[in-house]
């Protein structure tokens, strides 16, 4: 059973910002971390990731800067801004609320 991209779409920002809170990072590294942390349950598409980057950079939640990755290649790195931290906190709260609402409707079907 794969994850539905419709459901997770609203959470991409939270996931990316959470990883950027730990340390600045670049495209492929982020997608790799998402994959390994979810044990291959969620594989983010390149286009999804890139459109999230451009959108959040426009909104001022993250900023980009040139950097060099561990294998020596020049990559565009992203780091989280203060506005981004606030936005992340909001998103976490929003998720807690959403989860508590949806959970009330989750139950095992009894035959």
């Amino acid at each position: 059973m794969g994850i539905s991209s419709d459901v997770i779409r609203g959470c991409n920002d939270t996931i990316i910002l959470c990883l950027l809170l730990e340390e600045p990072s670049y495209g492929y590294e982020i997608s790799k971390k998402i994959r390994s942390r979810t044990k291959d349950a969620y594989i983010i598409k390149e286009t999804t990731l890139y459109s999230a980057f451009t959108r959040m950079e426009k909104d001022g939640y993250i900023e980009s800067f040139p950097g060099v990755s561990e294998n020596g290649k020049r990559r565009t790195y992203y780091r989280i801004t203060d506005t981004g931290r606030m936005y992340y906190a909001e998103k976490c709260e929003e998720w807690e609320l959403t989860k508590s609402v949806v959970e009330r409707f989750i139950k095992e079907i009894q035959e």
Binding site: G27, Y28, E29, S31, K32, E46, T47, L49, Y50, F53, T54, S69, K73, R75, T76
Partner: peptide
């Protein structure tokens, strides 16, 4: 410029993934 940049960034992500 936006399109060219997107192409370049996506290309790098794909390249990284491919080499790994």
């Amino acid at each position: 410029p936006e399109v060219i940049k997107a192409k370049c960034e996506l290309g790098q992500m794909m390249e990284d993934k491919y080499s790994e």
